[in-house]
Amino acid sequence: MNVIELSGVSKHFGKIKALDKVSLTIKEGEILGLLGPNGAGKTTLISIMMGLLSRNDGKMTILGKNADTSWKDIKKNMNIVSGFSGVHPSMRVDEFLRYYALLYDIPKREQRMKEVMALTNISDKKTQQVRDLSAGYTQRVLFAKALLNKPKLLFLDEPTVGLDVEIGLKIKALVKRLGQEGTTIIFTSHNLHEVEEICTAITLIMNGRIKKSGTVAEFKKRSHKFMTLEITCLDVQKAAQKVKKYAKDVRIDGGTMYVDTDEKNQQAILDAVIKSGSKLHSFAIVEPTLEEAFLELVRKR
């Protein structure tokens, strides 16, 4: 089932075209990474899908329901964590969660609150005021809030922004687990390593338009036209001389050389190394990181 179906969704703020005819489908259980430079329209898109922002044009079906007539039903089954949102600082953690448990009309409220606090590892801070918590804890309180209603659809708008690595890791593990349990997740982040690790699909958005959609593997493959080879051999210097004419760039690091090249020259380079007589030890393609693939796409414009 498709959890989200958008077609031709546009949004402008005065003269600014924040979204331009965006069409997008997201399948159940998918963890979609929404990528794009600052100001690309990610938050705008998320706000529209949550019913917090009205759109100028386009059709939208969410959780199988028409988003113009069934917001109340839709909202019961989704939730959000944003890196730029907040918590009433004078409320205690349990009070904050109780407020949202009431809003979502959660059955067995106190029980569910206990569960989400355990899931996010904040049980020990239950009776503390939020103002006394660190940024990482506060963010976990928001995660706890977002899990209260067991959302079928969860929006995460840069949820790890400004958090230290350790907390970031914990949150990452939590998101992964939610995905495995079948929650559909839409995730934006500036940290591409994070996206690469967590997401099952990626949509790249730039200037309010969708540039590319695909799986993480597909995103990387596209950049394989330019690949990096890692070659170790007995006489790297000698081999490097022979390889040079097929390569864009050759870097030597001890007994290893890294060769940036076009995909079609792969065989020629291998032959050249062997012919140079410098005794090949290993020959491998370095997997490009998503970051490299992403940068390449952004630069190509």
């Binding site: 917090l52 730029f84 949102s85 949202y100 809003l103």
Partner: peptide
């Protein structure tokens, strides 16, 4: 204004609250 200052408005308005 409480919601606005404490940045909880999007959370509450994303819930079924009208």
């Amino acid at each position: 204004m409480d919601h606005y200052w404490d940045k909880t408005l999007p959370h509450s308005m994303a819930s079924p609250l009208t």
